[in-house]
Design a protein around this nucleic acid. Structure first.
Length: 392
DNA sequence: TCTGGGGTCCTAGGACCC
DNA sequence: TCTGGGGTCCTAGGACCC
């Protein structure tokens, strides 16, 4: 029996919450993000704003230039969004016992067993959308497919308020026309590299031999794009994984040279990180200082401690020491912050193969297993690390 | 145009050990 | 005097995701 994965994504989440709670903002361009006139970017914007070409991660100054005067700008209210998110995840938990939240407004669900209980995938998807709308008054886009990749692309394909089910026999036709950036792990840099060799769509990648892709782009990326272009991806859904690190950083309104300001900012970050770590019942051994210098040059400096800690004072002393010892000390600083990781008793992360080999054999896994076996035979047992699996 | 903040994972060189 | 091979840890940087 093949698995059925559903991806749920709330449309323009932060902006939708704001418009839901302030009716006078509905129907108007709305931006949630940095304050206009200061440094920062758009976190999310309403669909009315997207019509002007504005999108997430766009510098706020550029958004202001593009948007009309009646645009509403609001700062994010994370506590409120988190509350709405918890309610949405609760609703999803009532639909399937296997829910994996991937961010504040997105989740994967294993809906394999729901056919007999609820009905065909389309019905499951419609019910999900209706339940979310009823519970929190927001619209969601929902995609269902044989694995995470296809489910995610299916939910993206009909946004906003979308619904799409892609069946196994439809996967290739669905994927082939997509741009390379649709594949997981292919961002701007990799997409450019792929395009330089004449590859433009997922179908183009699928038409190339695996060996060539591996030779040109490296074992990891080559194998990943090959598998994905054939519609092969992780179909497992697991409950939330543990956090691997906790960090706090801030960008100054203007670049800072005053070391007192840097020191006190680092002290604040250490207190925040220490507090969060203690509340997560975590102690870490790796302290990482992050600085971004003028104009936009990022560096990290880290130190492994002899004993795990969640102590503000130790975090601050370590980070400040790293800063003072750094050759860049004294230059104008745009951003400073620190992180803590390397938890005591770190959870073991099985790699993709280990997990697949220990898994109970399922006839529907044959195609995936055959492909992986072939790759293993040709390139050695350890040629694929984690990578298609985004969570332990 | 001028680039947030919070994360994950991978790579690669050097140290160090056997 | 010149020089193994494998494994793991540490550190810095970078691609990518939401």
């Amino acid at each position: 029996m093949s698995r059925l994965v559903m991806h749920v994504d709330i449309d323009a989440f932060y902006a939708a919450v704001e418009q839901r709670d302030r009716p006078e903002w509905r129907g108007r361009p709305l931006v949630v993000g940095a304050e206009p006139g200061r440094r920062g970017v758009v976190a999310t914007c309403s669909y009315e704003a997207r019509r002007f070409g504005v999108h997430s991660a766009m510098p706020i100054a550029e958004a202001v230039r593009r948007l009309p005067a009646e645009t509403v700008y609001v700062r994010p209210d994370m506590a409120r969004y988190a509350e709405v998110s918890r309610e949405i995840m609760r609703v999803l938990g009532a639909l399937s016992p296997i829910v994996e939240p991937v961010s504040i407004d997105e989740a994967y669900l294993d809906v394999s067993g729901l056919e007999r209980l609820v009905g065909p995938p389309e019905v499951v998807a419609r019910r999900t959308k209706a339940a979310i709308r009823e519970a929190v008054g927001l619209t969601a886009s929902v995609g269902i497919g044989p694995n995470r990749l296809i489910a995610k692309l299916a939910s993206d394909a009909r946004k906003p308020d979308g619904l799409l089910v892609v069946r196994p026999e439809e996967v290739r036709a669905f994927l082939d026309p997509m741009p390379l950036g649709a594949l997981r792990g292919v961002g701007a840099v990799t997409a450019r590299r792929l395009e330089q060799t004449g590859l433009r769509t997922v179908g183009d990648v699928r038409a190339r031999p695996l060996e060539e892709l591996r030779r040109r782009f490296g074992a990891r990326i080559g194998t990943q794009v090959h598998l994905q272009s054939n519609g092969i991806a992780d179909d497992r859904v697991h409950p939330a994984a543990e956090r691997q690190s906790i960090s706090k950083e801030t960008t100054f309104a203007e670049d800072v040279v005053d070391s007192d300001v840097l020191r006190e900012t680092l002290r604040w970050a250490a207190q925040e990180v220490g507090y969060l770590a203690r509340h997560a019942a975590r102690k870490g051994t790796l302290v990482t200082l992050k600085i971004r210098l003028h104009p936009f040059e990022t560096h990290t400096r880290s130190r492994t401690l002899a004993a795990p800690t969640a102590d503000d004072r130790i975090l601050f002393d370590t980070a400040w020491d790293l800063y003072r010892a750094d050759t860049h000390a004294g230059r104008a600083v745009r951003l400073i912050g620190l992180g803590l990781s390397g938890w005591a008793q770190a959870p073991v992360q099985p790699d993709l193969f280990a997990d697949m080999e220990s898994r109970e054999q399922d006839p529907a896994d044959d195609r995936l297993d055959a492909t992986l076996d072939a790759i293993r035979r040709r390139f050695g047992r350890h040629c694929i690390q984690r990578g298609l699996s985004r969570r332990p």
